[in-house]
Design a protein around this nucleic acid. Structure first.
Length: 575
RNA sequence: CGGGAUGUAGCGCAGUUUGGUUAGCGCGCUUGCCUUGGGAGCAAGAGGACGGGGGUUCAAGUCCCUCCAUCCCGACCA
């Protein structure tokens, strides 16, 4: 492709609307343009990258026995009503009506459609397992689209659904996908980490998220520094054994009321009473559909709402508003405590139960209780792990101190079980003629998000540095002086040769000065650049420069094609 | 959803406070000359009617109302 003809509108300045680096660079380098908030057009180079990512995904899905299909974007409400998700999915579901007033939605995911398909067509255990996937646009009306492609409202996703006879079969399918995902992201040239994740409201237990490691990531991950242990989890899910503390060695003292005027945060109370936040019992009130709940964690801890929601088995969980808090505790917000608290379920983090002579709100304005002892002064209805694990906590597997990192979730694999097959009646007959629900799994990869994540992870101050396997082109050939016929001819020849040799190459034949072309080349992020200047014309030696390392080497014209091919092959063949 | 901000040429911005000729600057774009190894220089041009609608006024980019769009922050840790 000749750059003079290529639809590649690069920008010198950063568009004001772009916050994160991938968004800025993809706009500047001429890959994407915005159509609406969270909705983008992919220009030729972006589309090439996307197709490469998709192709890698296809190969790895197919390798595991996946079969590609294509399902509709527009989905009838009836199926969503059948599964129960029409009502629970909420405002993130793009809903629309046809001319007859019938309800539809734009698919944010395809469990309903695929399950409805399979229930009609699959009847026998002989037809299982099935691994069906598609690469399709998805729609989620995010309350706040942001970060460019990282959180859009329309995005491309690969979703595969597995249908098995039983849990053992599901386990096999799950492992296949785990393997496939590992291969996909490795081949895409990304630094990533599979982590244990929360299964959310969908139910089921096992689920892993594949996180591309990047500071801009929205997800927080803890991991064990011991490679042989390998524990890694989203903090929403992460657990950590309770640590013994010196505090518990004390003998318990009698409960005492102290004045804490105006001290309504942990910080204020610890400063005022001169003690460590670890000795505070923090009491957080939540509103749920089953009534108000008080969650107790140590003062230096945060409540993990995902865990809390799970142990409470509630659909709705939000912090109680101030009037509710005042009604329940009889005090302003800031003075809630577990002692004598009525009419709420009390859930204590198991760390709290180890405290001796702790401090808690007194359920009275401007007062706290000291020498609070769990078990003696209050008895929770439930004790569970409801705290947020963080760096420095011990690893649940080996006890080493966990570390933290941020990640961009590019994939998730998930054991669904029989939730959808039961709701939608997807059953099969086993050997004994017994009707049984299929056991399902679902597995997603955010394709467009993966592209953005690749940029987040691979860039420098000059622009993008595409991993070779997903680069839009491998090489750019730049004649230094467009008025020098010899240079132009030589560049043209090399361009033709490389193209004939199967190298994905562009020729920068624009009537621009060399500096402009170099800047654009760095911005766009071609892995390699061949500069054709006077030296090349006179000596036949070509300058080959690598984008990632900025290293330059001279290669003879005879060897250039082979040299480049070799570099590409080596970079792409990582598995 | 709550809060904040922005909307003037393809991009980045000034002008709005204190209404007043023909709305400006940089980059980009067009043409010419010149230059040619990291976003050159000179010259001449094209391009907006100020997010939409309504209002106040002799007069509105500027004041008022309203709608829309976009971006950021937050969504409560007691």
């Amino acid at each position: 492709m000749r750059i003079s003809q290529l639809f590649l509108p690069t920008l010198r300045e950063v568009p004001a609307e772009a916050e994160v680096i991938s968004h800025q660079l993809l706009l500047r380098a001429g890959f994407i343009r915005k159509a609406a908030a969270g909705v983008y057009t992919f220009l030729p180079l972006a589309w090439r990258v996307i197709r490469k990512i998709e192709q890698i995904i296809r190969e790895e899905m197919d390798r595991q026995g996946g079969q590609e299909i294509m399902m509709p974007i527009i989905q009838p409400a009836e199926l969503w009503q059948e599964s129960g998700r029409w009502d629970v999915y909420g405002p993130e579901l793009f809903r629309l009506k046809d001319r007859h007033g019938r309800d539809f939605c734009l698919g944010p995911t395809h469990e309903e459609i695929i399950t409805a398909l399979v229930r009609q067509e699959i009847r026998s255990y002989r037809q299982l397992p099935q691994l069906l996937y598609q690469i399709q646009n998805k729609y989620r009306d995010e309350r706040r689209p942001r970060f460019g492609l990282l959180r859009g409202r329309e995005f491309i996703m690969k979703d595969l659904y597995s249908f098995d006879r039983d849990e053992a079969g599901l386990e096999v399918s799950y492992q296949k996908m785990y393997e496939a995902y590992t291969r996909v992201f490795t081949r895409c040239g990304l630094k990533f980490r599979p982590v244990e994740a929360d299964s959310g409201a969908i139910g089921g237990n096992d689920t892993h998220e594949f996180m591309v490691l990047a500071d801009s990531g929205e997800a927080l991950v803890v991991f064990c520094p011991d490679e042989s242990c390998g524990y890694a989890a989203n903090v929403e899910r992460a657990t950590s054994p309770v640590q013994r503390d010196t505090v518990e060695e004390e003998t318990s003292q009698p409960l005492k009321l102290v004045d804490t005027p105006g001290m309504h945060t942990v910080e204020q109370v610890t400063a005022y009473l001169g003690l460590n936040a670890r000795r505070i019992i923090k009491t957080i009130l939540y509103q749920t559909e089953k009534g108000v709940v008080a969650a107790l964690v140590r003062g230096d801890r945060d409540v993990n709402e995902v865990k809390l929601q799970k142990v409470l088995d509630v659909l709705r969980l939000e912090l109680a508003d101030a009037p509710t808090v005042e009604k329940i505790t009889g005090a302003r917000v800031g003075y809630a405590g577990p002692v004598g608290l009525q009419n709420v379920r009390l859930v204590a983090d198991d760390e709290v139960m180890l405290l001796v002579n702790a401090v808690a709100g007194a359920n009275r304005d401007d007062a706290h209780l000291v020498n609070v002892n769990p078990g003696r002064d209050f008895v929770p209805h439930m004790v569970a792990d409801i705290r947020v694990v963080r760096a420095g906590d011990p690893c649940p597997k080996c006890g080493a101190l966990l570390r933290e990192t941020r990640g961009i979730e590019v994939g998730q694999i998930f054991k669904l079980g029989d939730k959808y097959s039961r709701a939608l009646g997807a059953t099969y007959l086993d050997e004994r003629g017994q009707s049984r629900p299929m056991i399902m799994g679902c597995y997603g990869i955010g394709v467009t998000r993966t592209m953005a994540a690749a940029v987040e992870q691979n860039h420098d101050e000059d622009g993008i540095i595409w991993p070779v396997s997903i680069a839009p082109f491998h090489v750019v050939v730049i004649p230094v002086n467009h008025k020098d016929e010899q240079q132009m001819n030589l560049a043209e020849e090399i361009y033709q040769e490389l193209q004939a040799g199967g190298v994905e190459v562009v020729l920068d034949d624009r009537a621009e000065r060399a500096g402009v072309k170099f800047k654009d080349a760095d911005l766009v992020g071609y892995p390699m650049r061949i500069t054709v200047g006077n030296q090349a014309v006179q000596t036949g030696e070509l300058e080959l420069r690598y984008r990632a390392t900025r290293e330059m080497q001279l290669v003879s014209r005879e060897q250039i094609a082979g040299h480049i091919r070799e570099y590409i092959d080596r970079a792409v063949r990582v598995l």
